[in-house]
Simulated assay, not measured.
Amino acid sequence: MIVVAGEALIDLVPREAGALADLRPARGGGPYNTAVALGRLGSPTAFFSRVSRDAFGEALLEGLGAAGVDVSSVQRGPEPTTLAAASIGEGGSAAYSFYVEGTADRLFEVPARLPEGTRAVSFGTCSLVLEPGASAYEELMRSAAAQGVFTALDPNIRAGLIPDADAYRARFRSWLPSVSLLKLSEEDAEWLGGTPREWLAAGPSAVVITQGGDGLTAFTRDGSVHPVPGEKVEVVDTIGAGDTVNAALLHGLAVRDALSPAALSALTPEDWTGLLRFAARAAAITCSRAGAEPPYAAELADGDEPEHRAG
């Protein structure tokens, strides 16, 4: 079981160019997209969050259920669902304006325990910024790591939501001893400062940096660097691409029975190449369609993943 912890929200995605473009509501949020992508790939997945009882909240739970994600641990509340208004720029890149005051996902509370058989917990995005929920997710991260559970972090920076950049950067560094796998975009890496080597020295066993259409690169503690090129595709938009990478990495590691720091360190160059190519191909499929619509396992069946799933 892979647990994904973080926000679920509604993206308002423009159907056409213009400040008052026709907006289409779509299920979203980095952790939510990661959970859906994992479910579609076939990994047993549970979602930890706090979701509104409004119509948007019901739609979010329906989306998780359709992907086979366990929602039995999702907390519910009467507050509204967070909204994110997206604008699509050249090359399909997305920027967001958030409506977060008094929303349900900010009030997440630390659960009493992780589900039986939890192998990994994934964190990231707005949930680690907006209090009081951010402190609860942080506590869950530290607790999971202390129990020996594999942890993955994608900070997925939304600078407009961060009132004190330096304080957030310091907080980010404080998480690293509790992180097994750090994944981030090159834009996030630049915003945060530091280098993969510095982050590896602080805790993670591997750092993966995505570079848009140029591919992605893994850095490991032994000094190895594993780059793979991006998959060529006609980009509709990039919404959910990074979240799909998260899911593909976690799924691929589960397939290889590598959801532990020791197993991650033992991956061969061939393992890393296959894992990263799988993630690049999954992200390309997401970019080829509007909104966060990650691929299903059947769409990637001829790829680099082993046929046997461990565990």
Score class of each variant (00 low, 15 high):
92 G>V: 02
175 W>N: 02
158 R>C: 06
259 L>M: 04
303 G>T: 05
243 D>G: 03
280 A>D: 01
204 P>T: 10
101 E>G: 15
208 V>W: 07
219 F>H: 05
287 C>M: 04
162 I>Y: 11
265 S>Y: 11
34 T>D: 02
106 R>N: 09
236 V>E: 08
260 S>H: 05
141 M>G: 08
86 A>R: 06
1 M>E: 13
98 F>Q: 00
108 F>E: 03
131 E>W: 11
167 A>F: 10
93 S>W: 14
19 A>T: 15
235 V>P: 03
65 G>M: 00
169 R>T: 07
86 A>D: 11
102 G>M: 13
108 F>C: 05
117 G>Q: 00
99 Y>Q: 11
8 A>F: 05
88 I>W: 12
231 E>M: 13
231 E>D: 14
306 P>Q: 01
20 L>H: 15
33 N>E: 07
157 I>A: 08
307 E>F: 03
280 A>V: 01
85 A>V: 14
39 G>K: 01
297 A>G: 07
51 V>G: 03
64 L>P: 04
139 E>S: 15
256 R>T: 06
147 Q>W: 15
286 T>A: 06
118 T>I: 12
58 E>M: 01
161 L>T: 02
44 P>I: 10
310 A>P: 00
112 A>I: 10
276 L>W: 02
89 G>C: 09
107 L>P: 07
108 F>K: 02
59 A>G: 15
169 R>Q: 09
306 P>G: 03
70 D>S: 04
73 S>V: 14
228 V>E: 06
129 V>T: 07
168 Y>V: 06
57 G>P: 00
55 A>G: 11
49 S>E: 02
255 V>P: 04
